[in-house]
């Protein structure tokens, strides 16, 4: 397997092309690294060094100070550690879950045909509407509203929905999934708050994890659908002939083949959950608060505390960067080729 990671001639540029490539890559790297350099040096500056700036080089321009690091790691260290732990747990578990559920769904959507009936879907939506109206407007308890809604659904499923036979397809399901991301967070925060309050899940990891899984699933499904569809179906067919089950094929053949895509998608959803602010700040108070809240909190009545902000952002990047370094190698060529050729 190892040798397959090495690629062949089409990707080996000529010396001149290599030089140009390095120049371009270097230029972009500079554009990315300079702001980060500024961020890190700012974390070692005193307020006066920032306000009287710009100062560029530590020890030459200004005397670096650990005051901001001390404040974040010692003075409010308990908060920092708690929020950091929360962020790690919530981001990792939600993105792993989203990746598992999402890639399964994506696989199902690329390889099987689903024909849900429009009537059923419509009836279902109507019943949800009734449930929520009962709960919010009439003021029935949540349990009772859900029961009424469910009852209505069963009844109408047996009667009305049979009349509307138009079928939906996989692409409709996929589009429905992605359309769930259109709503801006502002519009969903208050309803979510009410839902979790009813479930008694406010200020817990569970609330954040469930939400982030749901928010990230559509992206996983869409990206993974594309990666799966590039995998030649012959491999799966031959495995099927050999008697492998669908799940076995999915877990032992398809997923490994889609590893580059999985890793890229994982990094993206992880970063999203890692950095999400608005939902997190509303669903948590203290116990489950995450890091982005702390970053935003540095801009209070006295204006942005650049030095603390910089420390926090630096702390937040470090673990994700480490993970990216670890995982980067899997976004590599050759796996697919290897599998096809056995």
């Amino acid at each position: 397997m190892r040798s397959l990671f090495h690629s062949r001639s089409p990707f080996k540029p000529s010396p001149f092309a290599a030089l140009v490539s390095y120049l371009l890559l270097g230029f972009w790297a500079l554009l990315i690294l300079f702001p980060l350099y500024w961020l890190i040096t700012t974390s070692f500056k005193l307020p006066a060094d920032v306000n009287n700036g710009p100062f560029y080089i530590p020890f030459v321009d200004f005397q670096p100070s650990l005051h901001a690091w001390r404040y974040i790691l010692e003075e409010v260290g308990n908060d920092t550690r708690r929020n950091f732990l929360n962020t790690v747990v919530v981001a990792l578990s939600s993105s792993v879950l989203a990746l598992m559920l999402g890639s399964s769904a994506a696989y199902a959507l690329t390889r099987f045909q689903f024909r849900p009936k429009l009537g059923t879907v419509g009836v279902f939506l109507a019943c949800v509407l009734v449930t929520i109206a009962l709960f919010l407007v009439v003021g029935l308890p949540l349990g009772a509203s859900v029961a009424v809604g469910a009852g209505l659904f069963v009844i109408s499923l047996l009667t009305i929905s049979k009349r509307f036979k138009r079928l939906l397809s996989n692409s409709d399901i996929a589009f429905w999934l992605i359309s769930q991301r259109i709503m801006p967070p502002v519009a969903v925060v208050l309803p979510l708050y009410v839902v979790y309050q009813q479930l008694g899940l406010l200020d817990t990891w569970a609330a954040l994890i469930i939400t982030y899984v749901a928010v990230n699933l559509p992206i996983v499904v869409w990206l993974m659908r594309d990666y799966f569809s590039t995998i030649p179906i012959e491999i799966e067919e031959s495995a099927q002939i050999d008697g492998a089950s669908r799940f076995r094929i999915f877990f032992t053949i398809v997923l490994p083949l889609a590893l580059p895509g999985l890793v890229a998608t994982f990094l993206f959803v992880l970063v999203f959950a890692w950095n999400e602010y608005l939902i997190s700040v509303f669903l948590t108070n203290a116990r489950a608060q995450t890091m982005p809240s702390m970053v935003v909190a540095q801009n209070a009545t006295r204006g942005p505390q650049w030095w603390y902000l910089s420390v926090l952002v630096t702390i937040m990047i470090a673990p994700v960067l480490g993970l990216a370094i670890l995982l980067e190698r899997y976004i590599a060529r050759g796996l697919l080729v290897g599998a096809v050729k056995g």
Partner: peptide
């Protein structure tokens, strides 16, 4: 298999998107 693979994702998204969607329509 196909349903087992697809349904969890659909249910999670449904659970968390329908309520906000309908409630914000009411709002």
């Amino acid at each position: 298999a196909p349903g087992v693979l697809l349904l969890p994702a659909v249910l999670v998204v449904l659970f968390l998107s329908i309520a906000p969607l309908v409630i914000s329509l009411l709002l």
